[in-house]
Write a protein that binds this DNA or RNA. Structure first.
Lengths: 337, 337
DNA sequence: CCCGACCTTGGGAGCGCTCCCATTTGGAAG
DNA sequence: CTTCCAAATGGGAGCGCTCCCAAGGTCGGG
């Protein structure tokens, strides 16, 4: 019955001693580096198994100056921003990509002052090997931090302003345009938009897409009704829209949550969808399929967004210089439009 | 314009030198430990500010044998399990609690073999100061790992089998019983259940609650229709239930996703809710509110679950010995029942 | 005025690993 | 049987921090 801390956690020295080799050789064998004879390599492996040796990650990190972790930072003034199924999908994708490189995922919700301060420290002191930044808003302090940080940074979704050096984004404008065009192509003329937060690039880009489509069809875009990507804001926005334009025949919402909210308001107002009024959303997450009627929506590859963002970070960590990536969207037609 | 790595990342030695004190004093001043004169303490603070010093987390970790991070491990054979809004809420809660203790959150999806192996290493070698384990299934290998690990472990939701030493859970049985009782109290008699995965304790516990309520009312519980907590499984399960028992007048679903699926099937089958058949769910996440009709459901404090799990882990890390915690649920009555 | 008692101080030994480099070893080539 | 080169080896110096401990200072009380 082994006891004592040294017994529970053998060090590399003990392994080396046990295998009758030096620490250097043991280290090389462990990282299967060259310059180790077959015999000693096997002796080390035996000792490792026998002692149940597991390398100490922190010690390794200190010596190599690599932490073995990447951070996913989600900005926002309220942690509820994160409570969107969108992020779980992103995380699943990022996690999968990181796993291949054997990096751990640190999740930082930069929602409070304290949270932001911790992210700042992280970036100032290389608390991670790289950082993925998401959901930045206008004048987000994280943007400046990212520039000053001497560590790999990739943006998941462009921030407002000049495009950063490294980012992965989705074709927000194209998707929104396609959805709006679809509405127009099916005879709708009084098309409004429930746009998303205009202090985010995604919100603005989708609004641009809507406007582009309207103008191309020779129609005057209606003034957008701004929401914050949540269901209640969609419901409230739809009510506002209805009172302003009683004769609407279609609405493009900046995401599925808001579209679902719109549906709820329309139902309460006695309007039928899509007969009286068509509704289209954006995201194609679960909610789009379970809405009644199921939502016609712009599918965006959310999991791939996470995965590609992580991959780009990995190539950056790897010393290469990837180019930005824009992922395509596609319209999914269901019953709501 | 400072250049060179040493310039960018001053060490404690440099700070000490700058402040005209020893490294020890600088260290003490930094961690505001006692035995430092006011004058030197201030000198150190000045030097810190001047040089833009940020302590090196890894070095500190190696010296203190604490990593400054806690891991949240989500088990499951498929990463899609994680793609449930439930987890984002848990994370928001856990993140908030951890933030207060200035611990980082590492997220581990133990969905692949590789992922599980990494978790194993993490636990074997104290790659974190503590671990929160969630969504364990029957005979989950993580359970054994947790016992062997010599690090603080808290379960978020009990695993199947003997209760672990430290856990936070929700009153699943009580909530399910209450929901079923509500259905019965409103005149429903042919009440079925769309139960969740029976290889999870939550799935079993909610089934028990349903059965308890039925038996207490002198009714024979109907054989449960098992799903996997997803919307499609709810839709398919509802179809199966309908073909087996055409005369159902109520369904209790083990979570909101499945209830939403049931709603979809019922709608397609031309049954009206709640007139023909009442539906109740469990969770009270966003989907419950946006379903049509809005779901009567058992509210569980998901964010608090995350928060309390993290808090319990913190007290454990702190050397204390907390007792298990069961959080209450409450029925939220909406239009579906 | 002297002597403990206590607060300060800084030296130094790690924490466990990686990696450079000098040294030894084993052969292949001449 | 030398000569040399490459592979193999292990010693040792860090990585940047914490913390123990011995040494020096300051003060109050006897």
């Amino acid at each position: 019955m082994p006891t004592g801390p040294s017994r529970r956690h053998p060090t590399l020295d003990e392994v080396a001693q046990h295998a009758g080799v030096s620490r250097s050789v043991a280290s090389r064998a462990l990282n299967n580096a060259p310059h180790v004879s077959r015999a000693k390599r096997e002796a080390v492996q035996r000792a490792v198994r026998l002692l149940g040796y597991v390398p100490h990650p922190t010690a390794r990190a200190l010596a190599t100056r690599q932490t073995g972790a990447a951070a996913l930072v989600v900005s926002g003034e309220d942690p509820s921003i994160f409570a969107d199924p969108f992020f779980t999908e992103v995380i699943v994708g990022a996690s999968a990509a990181l796993e291949e490189a054997d990096l751990h995922l640190m999740l930082c919700l930069a929602a409070s002052d304290r949270g932001r301060k911790r992210v700042e420290e992280l970036m100032r002191r290389r608390g991670a090997d790289g950082v993925m930044l998401m959901a930045l808003r206008e004048d987000d302090p994280l943007a400046r931090l990212a520039e000053e940080a001497d560590m790999p940074v990739v943006f998941g979704g462009r921030p407002i302003g000049p495009a950063p050096r490294h980012y992965v984004d989705v074709d927000n404008t194209g998707g929104a345009r396609e959805a709006t065009e679809y509405l127009l192509a099916h005879g709708r003329r009084r098309v409004a938009t429930l746009c998303g937060r205009l202090d985010t690039e995604a919100g603005r880009a989708r609004l641009r897409g809507y406007r582009d489509a309207m103008l191309s069809a020779g129609l005057e875009p209606l003034p957008p009704q701004e929401g914050d990507f949540t269901e209640p804001s969609g419901a409230a926005g739809m009510a506002a829209l209805l009172s302003r334009h009683a004769d609407l025949d279609a609405v493009f919402a900046a995401n599925d949550n808001m579209a679902a909210g719109a549906l709820r308001t329309l139902r309460a107002a006695g309007r039928t969808v899509p007969d009286d009024i068509a509704v289209a959303g954006f995201d194609d997450l679960t909610v789009a399929r379970i809405a009644d009627p199921p939502l016609t929506t712009v599918h965006q590859p959310v999991r791939a967004l996470g995965q590609e963002t992580a991959r780009m970070l990995l190539t950056l960590i790897n010393g290469q210089d990837p180019t930005p990536l824009i992922l395509p969207t596609r319209l999914i037609v269901r019953a709501s439009a």
